[in-house]
Amino acid sequence: MKKHTLVALMQDRPGVLTRAVSLFRRRGFNIESLTVGHSETPGISRMTLVVESEAVEQVVKQLYRLIEVLKVSDVTDDPAVEREMALVKVHCTNTNRSEIVTLTQLFDAKIVDVANTSIIVEMTGSPNKVQNFVDVIRPFGIKEMMRTGRVAMVRGARTHQGSDYVGAEENGHVAASTWN
């Protein structure tokens, strides 16, 4: 089954994330990753989701049924920057520490914490690159790992801006509201 990367813009109303997640569960959509956060426009959240589905069109259409959803784009086949981040706590000893440091440098990852028997590496990159890093580092012994979902943005002049869909005035009430 093909994996699709979708980018969705939605009004930041109470419960909007729950609504989206509830919808995926109820319709049996298989969501591999989901990341939400603020967009450039106040009051508009941006979601990136990776969904494994033959019927990605249904995912898009069902999302549009949520009244908060402004725009959903399938960017799978677009030239897009896709990024994930992982925090990995790697087991280390005095003898292999430098080897881990070298690998980290090779992957352009960052060491963010060093202790006697462990190192925390912050790895950011394309989903593939993050996976490769994790595969390479695993033999050293991963004590703990936290990977984020994917975020995506199409390259070049094309944009998915919240302000394309919401006039500042139109969004005024929503941004000010606290319905929960």
Binding site: R19, S22, L23, I67, T178, W179
Partner: peptide, 20 residues
Amino acid sequence: TMPITKHNYLVKRIDDIPYV
């Protein structure tokens, strides 16, 4: 009722009642 409504609201502030 989230999966069986077109939309729903929990209103906690009087000021939101006319709009909602």
